[in-house]
C-alpha cells in the first residue's frame, strides 16, 4: 500500500485556521476528487476480488471478508454513471460507516486528508446536469482543486432494519 497511511498519521497537514474545522479523507476516481467525513472512515484496504451477489445494482461489486464480517463493496465510478472499474491491486477500497453498517467503496486511490473550515464548504449548485448531485453534500476548493464531499446515505442508502 502506498503513502496514504503516512497521511493518515499526520491529518493536520492542510490545516487552515478559520472557524470550526472538519476533516475529510479525499480520494480519486478518474482524477476527480471526492471527500468523506473522516469520522465515517473505518479503514482503507487494498482491492481484493469480491464475491458477486445476484440481482444487485451494477455498481455493487459484491462482498468481501473483513476480518470475519461480510461487507458489501460498491464501485464509486459506476455509481456516478461510469463504467465498471477494472479493479487491480492498486485500487483501493475505503471502508466507511453508513448508519450502523460497514460498507466498502471502490475508488482509484486515496489522496489526502484535508481540514476544512465549515464556512468554506459551498453548497452544490442545483439544476446543473452534473450527474447525481443530491449525493453530494458540498464542495470545497483546495490548493489541489475542487473536492466534492459525498453524502454517503444518499449515495448508498442502507436499510436500517425494519424501522
Amino acid at each position: 500500500m502506498t503513502d496514504f497511511t503516512d497521511v493518515l498519521e499526520n491529518p493536520d497537514s492542510n490545516t487552515k485556521k478559520s472557524g470550526p474545522l472538519k476533516q475529510y479523507v479525499t480520494f480519486l476516481v478518474d482524477d476527480r476528487s471526492y471527500g468523506v467525513d473522516i469520522n465515517l472512515v473505518r479503514e482503507i484496504k487494498q482491492w481484493t476480488p469480491t464475491t458477486t451477489l445476484p440481482n444487485q445494482p451494477h455498481y455493487t461489486r459484491g462482498v468481501l471478508n473483513l476480518r470475519g464480517t461480510i461487507v458489501p463493496v460498491h464501485d464509486l465510478r459506476t455509481r456516478f454513471g461510469g463504467a465498471l472499474t477494472e479493479a487491480t491491486e492498486v485500487h483501493v477500497v475505503v471502508i466507511v460507516w453508513i448508519g450502523s453498517k460497514t460498507v466498502g467503496i471502490l475508488v482509484d486511490a486515496v489522496s489526502d486528508i484535508i481540514s476544512v473550515p465549515t464556512d468554506d464548504i459551498r453548497p452544490v449548485p442545483s439544476g446543473q446536469s452534473l450527474g447525481d448531485m443530491s449525493s453530494l453534500s458540498g464542495l470545497v476548493n483546495t490548493e489541489n482543486g475542487m473536492v466534492a464531499l459525498l453524502d454517503l446515505n444518499t449515495l448508498f442508502p442502507v436499510e436500517e432494519d425494519e424501522l
Binding site: T51, L53, P54, Q56, V63, G68, I70, V71, P72, K101
Partner: peptide, 24 residues
Amino acid sequence: KSLEANFKRVEGISGATILGDGQV
C-alpha cells in the same frame, strides 16, 4: 455469516460463509 449485518437481504441467499482461503 450474515449478509444483512452490513448489507441487506438478498433474494435467493440466506447468508454467507468464509472459505478456507478467506473468500466469501
